[in-house]
Nucleic acid binder design. Structure first.
Lengths: 261, 261
DNA sequence: ATCACATGTACGATATATTGGACACAAATG
DNA sequence: CATTTGTGTCCAATATATCGTACATGTGAT
């Protein structure tokens, strides 16, 4: 519904929201930070951050690490994440699919999902020529920057897409502005064709292939992608797409199916 | 400090604490539940639980699954847990150690840690005779019930141990009462010897071996364990302990060492 | 039909969590 | 030496989150 909640000025933030904002921020930074630094960088009152950090420390959600009072994500989060992974048991099948893709194509293969209203690489298998991939596993990236993004929002209406994606995420990394209507047209095209491919707009030398992995609700719960050198990708387009579709078929309905019961 | 905080009557619970209580409860249950059921089973006001569940749903911390409005741990927790695992990169080395133990002993090997003030099996490798192990991976268990428990609290003073472990956890599964002083004596013995072994008090047919894996602070951050049939365990005691110590030495200082930086 | 129960929603009262600002201290900077 | 910056703690004010209660619904039992 309200994708952006922190727009009103002079309003107090809810502790829970702030807490998860802190956790997400630490995940993005991927390093331990002092409460003071966190407060400054997320633009939250220092006293609130100190209070919340202490609460989270007591719960094992955060841990002291790196010295100097720095904190990072805690063990409890690992346990909770492991329980999620155990329930929605996509990991094993996912790894097998990536393995298969890597074997057949020798290219870099990725398993991607939405993280809130952004895109993230959940698992990756490096290809035979491991060139520098621009997005690391676990980093969240604006949806419009990625081929997978076209598939992951395809179940939403045009208006829902516009509400869902933060407006500033249509600003591409090279500074250009991607017209939302252009993006939506690509989404609809991807939806019809059941795939999306393009020359990456994050770098200037890769071609990206994405196909949907469908969940219980029938829409794309995740995607499988290949990231290839541009020449290679264009030369092997049909074969690569076949490999992707085959691998995705093996995962379909898996990501949201409980392990048992 | 204050291990038990929900003792005072007529006091409001803090949303954050309640929220993580809900998450932990779902993890213990390992299944999706309706908000109503959660409220009833953790003894929290229904209106509060509905409010919190909705907040957590909006944040992706919880997800609808299983129909009928049931909720379970969400994808965001998986991402946060993965970030923790990536930072404190014990997984790879841990798996190798378990593999090695399983090869050398053919017995069930476990990697265990504290989860707050209880004990949990983080990873397990089934042995050649996979009999029914009483504790599953991810379930949390009273510290006094386990061999590892003796090692995991050994860095605390006697008084700290008593404050740390919930009093009711000294009630053993067979109904007997384990005198805290007896437990503490065993803790000190384990600390001196750098190991603890006993016939399991959870079941009646296994023998347990535990050795510490030391973290940066020098005390047991985790343990490696073997769970064996009693005869086997007693017959091979010395060899098994050697295997454990060797494997633990390979992990020492690893659990809390960042991958890089 | 009547009752009991499970489930979800709505709302007001009040206990309290969030917040800005003051304070203390150390370290860096001029 | 004076000043600025970074860090953490403490405190009171008030906006609001929590919680009891009431209400609405569906379902199954008696």
């Amino acid at each position: 519904m309200d994708a952006v909640q922190d727009e009103a000025a002079g309003k107090r933030a809810r502790g829970l929201d702030r807490a998860f904002e802190i956790l997400d921020f630490l995940r993005q930074k991927r390093q331990a930070l002092k409460p003071n630094e966190i407060a400054a960088q997320i633009g939250a009152p220092r006293s609130s951050v100190y209070e919340l950090v202490n609460l989270l420390l007591q719960n094992g959600i955060l841990e002291f690490t790196g010295g100097e009072g720095r904190v990072y994500l805690g063990r409890k989060l690992y346990f909770l994440g492991a329980a999620y992974e155990n329930h929605f048991d996509f990991t094993r099948e996912c790894e097998a699919a990536l393995e298969q893709l890597a074997d057949e194509t020798r290219e870099t293969a990725q398993f991607c999902m939405l993280d809130g209203n952004r895109y993230t690489v959940v698992r990756m298998r490096e290809g035979a020529r491991p060139f520098r991939i621009s997005t690391d596993v676990g980093q969240s990236v604006p949806i419009p920057w990625t081929a997978s993004g076209r598939l992951l929002v395809a179940h939403l209406s045009d208006q829902e897409i516009l509400n869902f994606i933060p407006p500033q995420d249509f600003r591409l990394p090279n500074g250009e502005w991607l017209e939302p209507q252009t993006f939506i047209a690509e989404v609809r095209q991807a939806e019809r064709e059941g795939l999306f491919t393009f020359n990456s707009i994050v770098d200037s030398f890769t071609h990206c292939f994405a196909v949907p992995v469908r969940g219980e609700e029938g829409h794309a719960a995740a995607t499988l992608c290949l990231v290839t050198p541009r020449d290679d990708g264009i030369a092997n387009r049909d074969r690569y797409l076949d490999c992707l579709k085959k691998a995705a078929a093996g995962l379909d309905h898996a990501p949201s199916r409980p392990k048992r019961t």
